[in-house]
Design a protein around this nucleic acid. Sequence first.
DNA 1: CAGAAATCGTTTATTGATTCACAATAGCGG
DNA 2: CCGCTATTGTGAATCAATAAACGATTTCTG
Lengths: 231, 231
Amino acid sequence: MTAMASEKTVERLSLYRRLLLRLRDDGADVVFSHQLCVPVGVTPAQVRRDIMQLGCSGVPHAGYKIKDLLAAIAEMLDAPQSQRAVLVGVGHLGLALLTHFSGRWRWLHVHAAFDVNPSKHGAIVRGCNCYGLDQLPRIVREWRVEVGVITVPMDAAQTVATMLCDAGVTGLLNFAPLRLQTPEHVYVENVDLTTSFEKVAYFARHPARLANNKNAERDAASEKDRADVPG
Amino acid sequence: MTAMASEKTVERLSLYRRLLLRLRDDGADVVFSHQLCVPVGVTPAQVRRDIMQLGCSGVPHAGYKIKDLLAAIAEMLDAPQSQRAVLVGVGHLGLALLTHFSGRWRWLHVHAAFDVNPSKHGAIVRGCNCYGLDQLPRIVREWRVEVGVITVPMDAAQTVATMLCDAGVTGLLNFAPLRLQTPEHVYVENVDLTTSFEKVAYFARHPARLANNKNAERDAASEKDRADVPG
DNA sequence: CAGAAATCGTTTATTGATTCACAATAGCGG
DNA sequence: CCGCTATTGTGAATCAATAAACGATTTCTG
Ligand SMILES: NC(=O)c1ccc[n+]([C@@H]2O[C@H](COP(=O)([O-])OP(=O)(O)OC[C@H]3O[C@@H](n4cnc5c(N)ncnc54)[C@H](O)[C@@H]3O)[C@@H](O)[C@H]2O)c1
Ligand SMILES: NC(=O)c1ccc[n+]([C@@H]2O[C@H](COP(=O)([O-])OP(=O)(O)OC[C@H]3O[C@@H](n4cnc5c(N)ncnc54)[C@H](O)[C@@H]3O)[C@@H](O)[C@H]2O)c1
């Protein structure tokens, strides 16, 4: 059915979804491409193209049905049955993530957490226990866990990543400030807060703005997407 | 002197620096482009190009002086004197960030934190106090704070962003799951953990890998950069 | 000292994503 | 029922980022 989406496309779909959910809760049934483009920071054409890739069709003067879009995005992004993740490193950051994400989604469940520190073992948040690292391979294998979240200190990150990959995960969300060496088939998403911080500091100091999602506002406001036929 | 760097370039420079610091601490004096490219996930040519933009020169066969590179990166990324940031929303995530980042850099100081909840007011971490929101405009203005970190719940994020922009910050690091509306001249870096999570889940489910920094390993290993002259 | 090997600097191509442009289409008002 | 307008769908053009290519340069080795 739908072909493989690119990283950028997946990012936008995630944003569209959150926006659509809010619109739906506000009572809207349909939406136009120029409504979606502003908060995501792209042009209406980009939105239409993304929706096309989803396999959805709109109606020229009537827009897209929000229900259809949500269903199509869910089919693309969410696991058909259910998908499990584990988190390793129940420190400041790990605990914040667990608190925030546990039980938030039906289709992606944070199944367990791990830490070397025995004082962290036991129940952490509802539906998620913390174990010693020795339990990791068994639990990941038994529950067919596909996603690993790494929130251990830098020095331990590579070891943990290797354990997770060996145990069979195929996706890693890495918060440690280094690039992990992983097998070819494992997808790694690095959330590098140090880099993000340095980026903001740099651009905050430089008044000349990069294309910073700002141009889209203008585009949508004046709806430049339509051909302004010359002559 | 050095021209404005692109977002991607700044990201790579941040990574180069951390790598170079480790190499230096291990006693190295010089480095080759193919050593830097692997952990950053690019080709040697890209590394050379970045270094060129820094205004540094290497010596064929002898590599680049690590000291020079670090100095050039610091000149590009770090504020000449000192730069201040504030954080708004001392919850799980905010506290994790404060603990991690406070006092970590000479050139970028987390000067203060803010929260609506009075129980959070007072000293949080060494060198960083927490105040009520009413103090925000005054402190940001008086200390010429340039960077604001937003870790409040989604519903409060836009209000906080507006306050910060009005008070004069020119860069925002936003952890709330929405796109902020800000004046033209303010740079916003969104750290969208929900999207990151959904991305990993998606690609973990899809064995066909995207260009995921993996090809660079091969390139560097076999040093394909050199012309393999045909005939 | 000469020739080989490695590495840099830079120009040129490639790639992939985004935007533009506009024909096709459907609602809407008279 | 008929133009009129707003909006979609999509091929072509543009753009930015990356990789390839290769001559120039320097060290190293015999
Ligand atoms: N907290 C932040 O705001 C922040 C910002 C940027 C980067 N990071 C990175 O995120 C990671 C975690 O940061 P943090 O602030 O939560 O650190 P933290 O010290 O609060 O927590 C680390 C946790 O990992 C556990 N741990 C240590 N070694 C382990 C191992 N081998 N296996 C399993 N668990 C182990 C520790 O017991 C601790 O509970 C670090 O790599 C840090 O560089 C954090
Ligand atoms: N914690 C995570 O792992 C995580 C993950 C994804 C996204 N986020 C986002 O990060 C933000 C913070 O998450 P959190 O887990 O730290 O939440 P939290 O509830 O633990 O902390 C929020 C803090 O903000 C304060 N606050 C509320 N309204 C405020 C206002 N108007 N002005 C100043 N302070 C205010 C609260 O008192 C609280 O201390 C949220 O937007 C959340 O969606 C967090």
